[in-house]
Design a protein around this nucleic acid. Structure first.
Lengths: 152, 152
DNA sequence: AGTCTAATGCTACAATGTTGCATCAAAAGC
DNA sequence: GCTTTTGATGCAACATTGTAGCATTAGACT
């Protein structure tokens, strides 16, 4: 059992899962909590590290499948980031259509809560399910003068 | 030598390359032409097929490197599409910051020429180099009633 | 034609996901 | 509480997408 687990947060995660008729498993609970605690979207790798940190055994495939399920259920959402790997974040109430900033120096993805992708006019017949706006550049930390470029 | 090659288009591509001080090679010329001819951004795979069709021998690595060079030189640009693989398109005059539409049924990427990603207000210190706006949904063909869902 | 070196084409590898299948354990029934 | 059922897991093997190192080829220049 993970040390110092917060009961209230755990219960919220468990309910979120049970409400969808899914089985409440260590992996799913831990993934939801990790996503909820994080200020920015997490990659599969970062989530794996979080599970390790929580003392929860898992394997790559299990994590992929847990994430697939969460996305399918609308609990989490997948975003495309700047690199090849997907990143995941919890879907907050409402549509939560915020934009993301990808720092090309440190690789970090930051949520831009108050920036939303405007739905533009489209050719006839096109139906938009969701819009993804990603800004690429240098974040506040990396953009400062004198800051060493981090290897990445 | 490719059959029925259009001399004018070939010359334009050759000049584009030479102007950057690069060597004019079969691969680069063919890649530029394929990108110019295509109405939508092409994946690495699609480009490979195009080269095969033009009777131009190549290998995966060469194609990746040719594309890297074209992007580096500002001749082409990379976009993130809906799937894992990059897609490439020719950079037209000016900044060419148009948006893209990703059809979740047929996987196709369509350029939305007159939709541009609005540069939003950012936290202090953030510098935006480029913005990527991708709309996900169903394209005109796939959205029509009675159209069979294509496997993908 | 000969020289120089950027591009190419291997081979091998790395990163990110996916599939199939036997096993385990969460939820439900007894 | 014990058993059953089946969703979730863990493992092995594979698929896709992209990179690195290095010997060889072929543009460009003389």
């Amino acid at each position: 059992m993970p040390l110092h687990e917060h009961p209230a947060a755990t219960d919220a995660a468990r309910e979120l899962i049970a409400a969808r008729g899914g089985r409440v498993t260590r992996t799913r609970v831990a993934v939801i909590q990790a996503l909820q605690r994080s200020a920015h979207p997490l990659s599969h790798d970062e989530l794996g590290a979080a599970l390790d940190g929580a003392g929860i055994a898992h394997d790559r495939v299990t994590l992929y499948r847990a994430l697939d399920w969460l996305v399918e259920q609308g609990i989490a959402q997948r975003i495309a980031g700047g690199e090849r790997a997907w990143r995941f974040e919890i879907r907050r109430d409402g549509d939560h259509r915020h934009a993301h900033f990808h720092c090309e120096r440190c690789g970090q993805i930051v949520c831009l809560e108050d920036v939303s992708a405007a739905a533009p006019t489209l050719p006839a017949g096109f139906a938009v399910a969701r819009a993804e706006l990603v800004l690429h550049g240098a974040c506040a930390d990396c953009g400062r003068e004198g800051v060493e470029r981090k290897e990445r």
